[in-house]
Design a protein around this nucleic acid. Structure first.
Lengths: 194, 194
DNA sequence: ATGTTGACTGACTAATCAGTCAGCCTGGCG
DNA sequence: CGCCAGGCTGACTGATTAGTCAGTCAACAT
């Protein structure tokens, strides 16, 4: 693993546990096994380290759900694949997700450019889910609900699970199958046109 | 408003916008219109300020849903009241909720005692919702779902809405009626025993 | 009058932080 | 071999921080 990568890994873990402002760059360096200066050799400033973590995460997630949505079958089938991908992604990338969701305010004040970049990426998440719903409504596999608001609720429920787990004050049971079944009951017709 | 209260108000607003570690006590004092020392006169340390904010919030919320759950009618009626109370509470107390959800890690390392205190309060939230569901299953107004996991999903969806709003990268539409309707469709039978 | 209390003040301090910089080390090239 | 580029180092700095403390002041009691 390159030094740059071990800095990213150490930073992700520390930011997740202690927060961005609660983590000293010297601590990141120590954990990564490099000198203080090396951190600033690879990242112009501490903030850029955070941006790197968030960017990599969101980009990978958007790619993943796009791929899951593109496969064959009905709109509901596609949506179910997106759901499962999201649930698995959440389990694998807990730390980065915690960081990306918690530290957004750092990404806000950056003259708007950075905010627009991430805003556009996040909108794609909603768009992919809405497309699945509209496709499902066209092929008869999904009920006539508001596609936009439902896409939001899909995103929100996944996000809520992550936050409740990450919060640490409640022991959250496994809910993956329940979540998919909840959405199947709310959305799927069971009778697509052939 | 007492100086103590104006310190709490200022701290809540600043913690919500900049995070706990991103806010200096001198900044809180300035915003509250008091001297630096006054902050430490009323709160032994910065952390206690955070604990005060969280404690007041969670206690009020637990009281609120308990009251909402106690009223007359079917289990579903009670659950619907709890849902609406939660949605309104979330709208009114956005800042404190943002702080309480984001800064928990600060409450963790406190020798476990503090963790246990908040953990117990949070468990009550799940318990109240589960009681409504079980009451609804007894009177026939709610379907035979897993009460415990469903109570979690109820909590999680509400939490998810807050976080998505607070995240600031997506413009979230109003979803209150949609949320209640989704749960009605998933849970309510429409045919309670009389 | 004198004493006591406690909210309140703001200058102060020891510690910590992000970021800098002068220079070290290593591998490739002529 | 000498030379160079650039990844890498860690001591250093100026700024900021949480928390302290000696003391002011107004209210009230004796």
């Amino acid at each position: 693993m390159s030094k740059k990568q071990s800095i990213l890994t150490a930073a992700t873990e520390l930011f997740a546990r202690q927060g961005f402002n609660g983590t000293a760059t010297s601590e990141i360096a120590r954990k990564a096994g490099v000198a203080q200066g090396t951190v600033f050799h690879h990242f112009k400033c501490k903030e850029n380290l955070l941006i790197s973590i968030c960017d990599e995460l969101v980009t990978k997630y958007v790619e993943g759900i796009k791929e899951a949505a593109q496969g064959s079958g009905t709109g509901w089938d596609a949506l179910e694949r997106v759901l499962w991908f999201s649930l698995n992604f959440m389990a694998e990338r807990t730390e980065s997700i915690t960081v990306a969701f918690r530290e957004t305010r750092v990404l806000q004040h950056e003259g708007g450019e950075l905010h627009d970049h991430f805003s556009a990426l996040m909108s794609q998440i909603i768009d992919v889910k809405r497309d699945c719903i509209e496709r499902g409504q066209a092929d008869g596999s999904i009920r006539q609900v508001d596609p936009y608001k439902t896409a939001f609720l899909l995103y929100i429920l996944i996000k809520g699970i992550h936050h409740t787990r990450a919060h640490g004050l409640l022991q959250v049971p496994d809910l993956n199958t329940e979540v998919v079944e909840f959405w199947r009951q709310s959305l799927a017709t069971g009778n697509p046109h052939q």
